[in-house]
Design a binder for these strands. Sequence first.
DNA 1: CTTGACCTTGCCATGATGGGAAGCCCTATG
DNA 2: CATAGGGCTTCCCATCATGGCAAGGTCAAG
Lengths: 131, 131
Amino acid sequence: MNIGEAARASGVSAKMIRYYESIGLVPAAPRTGAGYRVYSASEIQVLRFIRRARDLGFPVERIETLLALWRDRSRHSSDVKRLARDQIDALESKIAAMQAMKEALEHLAQACCGDDRPDCPILSDLVQGPV
Amino acid sequence: MNIGEAARASGVSAKMIRYYESIGLVPAAPRTGAGYRVYSASEIQVLRFIRRARDLGFPVERIETLLALWRDRSRHSSDVKRLARDQIDALESKIAAMQAMKEALEHLAQACCGDDRPDCPILSDLVQGPV
DNA sequence: CTTGACCTTGCCATGATGGGAAGCCCTATG
DNA sequence: CATAGGGCTTCCCATCATGGCAAGGTCAAG
């Protein structure tokens, strides 16, 4: 299986597969005589694992740990759960920060009549700071 | 006022002030004979404006537009309001995406007993995909 | 044998920010 | 007056994960 096919099968772009290889997240794929990377079903599984972990917002660095746990048959599920909780916490704090921005903006937008006149509490707030 | 003082007064780091100048977000500051940038109160105001807009999550590119509207005395507040609404929408969609990640993870974490045994629905999900 | 699709590597760009180095400048203190 | 320390300058590098492009090799089908 060539890299393009592996990309289609795993949902990870060929570019990213090469990148993951370059940073050591996945082992270097064997090559054909012409230098083409060759993938088998188990590699596809790993790539899909990575893809799904990325979809859950895990940074690549954490995925390394997740993969190590996955490979470790004597792992403790508590370790996996802790990683998940950490990720949940990270997401929560980002969400909270953005929620705060959104609410501040909503307040301002609500106060702005949004017509043809120049007066605008949004700009006033930006220029003089929150009251 | 030197750049360090301007940074302290505006809450924008000296590094960022130079960056904003380099990308044309703020006009080039006048220099002393020795080449030091010099800032006056009105520049500080602009920098503070930028700082607050960044705090509300506006990307620098949008701030350029906000600054233009601010300077334009014949602006329509509706234009400002539209930018604010766009930013609210952008924040909302990012929040929604992260919220979805968080909920998916919470489901998984809830199903993981988190003990010394290796069995873990989180890893199972990553490897075989959401059911 | 040609054509088109695919692969390779390598470089550049993103966005906003920080770090650091090399070197110049200013001020205060001894 | 000399020197030390802190501030300024520019320039380069790194982040994080991803995409794009270009030059060149490869493979398969017609």
